[in-house]
């Protein structure tokens, strides 16, 4: 049992480290976010599971699972919120960025994003910017 816990902790810590490395080395905001959110959330979750297994007591296991759930739930939402805010306030992108599909679909004033599939009624209001 302990070996599994040890392995999980090491992998988890490794992922968090990679997350940190990504945050440091990635050129612009969006790319950094990939690293920190995905690697971080995974790393945190693994460590949580490891600790849950280490303390065999079900009460603690429930809490560690709760930690896993919350980490995995909140990290992306936080990243989403800050990415959206960054994008709208015009944070510069990496000069080698090729595609930015969001730009055409975006109504910058109202902060509304349209998938382009809405009926014509909605589309007109968007076009006037």
């Amino acid at each position: 049992m302990n070996t599994v816990v040890a392995i999980l902790i090491l992998i988890g810590a490794g992922f968090i480290f990679i997350g940190g490395l990504g945050a440091y080395r990635m050129p612009d905001m969006m790319l950094r976010m990939h690293a920190t959110t995905k690697a971080g959330a995974l790393g945190g979750g693994l460590v949580a599971i490891a600790v849950g297994l280490y303390f065999a007591d079900p009460a603690y296991l429930v809490r560690t699972i709760a930690i896993l759930v919350f980490v995995v739930l909140t990290a992306p939402v936080a990243a989403h919120a800050i990415a959206r805010a960054g994008y709208f306030t015009g944070v510069p992108f990496w000069e080698k960025t090729l595609k930015d599909e969001l730009r055409e679909k975006l109504d910058t004033k109202g902060h509304h994003i349209y998938s382009g599939l809405e009926s014509n009624g909605d589309v007109e209001t968007r076009r006037e910017d």
Partner: peptide, 8 residues
């Protein structure tokens, strides 16, 4: 983003 990672 860095602050988020530090929390984690």
């Amino acid at each position: 983003i860095a602050l988020e990672l530090i929390a984690l």
